[in-house]
Design a protein around this nucleic acid. Structure first.
Lengths: 205, 205
DNA sequence: TCTCCGTTGCACACCAGTGTGCAATCTACT
DNA sequence: AGTAGATTGCACACTGGTGTGCAACGGAGA
């Protein structure tokens, strides 16, 4: 009884439990990424676990998706706030943002497809803060005449990172090739001249 | 028996039948556009018809979606071949293409969502010719140094008209505002300078 | 008037996924 | 050894969509 606390990881029990829980979440991203309509059974099998066990960790399918979304929001806001805090030019900040966001966006690309139909509302709600931060960055770029103004900051930011997700969803998406392509393409559509865009990604490979 | 032919519209019978058939197709685009997972029942109700009747025209859900896709392919290839035949600069051709494609893309935007999951393969196969024509146009632009080359013509064309569909799918999509936004944005991401892009859409409102 | 034939309304079987219940099993901790 | 707890394997009920069968209705055409 050297341990009067309640949750000092309790050594192994809860740790292995958390491992399976995390494994389910990780594998759910992959499975749902390939087929957003995959069932709990598919996810369970892919995680090397029985369907019943998944329900032990997540009472319903919605809980699983929500947890996934919360995870994504946490990671993305972390990157975004950090980049947003820097005093670099908006286009440079955007380039750095995409470069660092890329692995995250690629992992959670399924949320794009999941946004419509059934869980769309829940996901949309959770993604709200991310959308705001994104719009702030774009607005800063527009105010300093770095970004084009043919669209409002709200719409433009949505479309711009929609493209990032679209490329992340594309066939040849992993590797740094996708990151470069996504950064350049999004910069271009934000109105940054091609030479400048290429120079920016050169800085941040 | 003044009529020895086989299909002189047979006056009314088959005509009213074709009307309901077309109405089902039209309404299916709307319903599926709002919710790609809508069932045959929803489509039937929206068309003012019983579910059983829909199955009378389309033996299975796949048949309905396939017919819808074939329709889209027909309309899109018509526009694309016409634009592709012109000897204008590639960026001007693209601008005209988007302007004329816009209503079509907006109507069939649901196919974007339907491309993944269940019918994805069938749709993808039917859309093949469109993809080729699109890639040809982009490649022409790249060869004449009008479009950027940070991505291959195949990928770039996909991403570019993916954006068009994304904007068509956006909330404020109908009206000419969406068409302008889609044209400018796609031109920008193709590497066309902002001033040139705006001039191009000015020519074709 | 009588006959097609599209349409309707209802029936059914089928399937796939969801979520729950419960006894059995295995394992880490005491 | 004993126990708590996660996991398993199987059961079940429920839902919702699909596709089919069939008798009945109703209007246009012979």
């Amino acid at each position: 009884m050297c341990n009067n606390g309640v949750v000092p990881t309790e050594s192994s029990r809860v740790r292995s439990m958390n491992e399976t829980r995390d494994r389910i979440l990780d594998v759910a991203l992959d499975v749902l990424g390939e087929n957003p309509d995959a069932g709990m059974g598919d996810i369970a099998s892919a995680a090397g676990v029985v369907r019943r066990t998944v329900y032990g960790h997540f009472p319903s399918r919605l809980d699983l998706v929500r947890t996934l979304t919360e995870r994504a929001v946490t990671e993305m806001t972390a990157v975004l706030t950090e980049v947003n805090a820097s005093d670099a030019e908006a286009d440079a900040a955007w380039a750095e943002f995409i470069a660092r966001l890329w692995p995250v966006a690629h992992r959670y690309r399924v949320l794009l497809a999941l946004r419509r139909g059934e869980y769309g509302e829940a996901i949309h709600g959770l993604l709200g803060p991310v959308d705001e931060l994104l719009a702030d960055l774009v607005k800063r770029g527009q105010d300093t005449d770095v970004f084009a103004q043919h669209l409002s900051a709200g719409i433009l930011s949505q479309v711009a990172y929609g493209v990032v997700f679209a490329i992340a969803d594309s066939d040849l998406s992993n590797g740094t090739l996708g990151a470069r392509a996504a950064t350049i393409t999004s910069l271009l559509m934000l109105g940054v001249p091609e030479t400048r865009a290429i120079a920016l990604v050169g800085d941040q490979p």
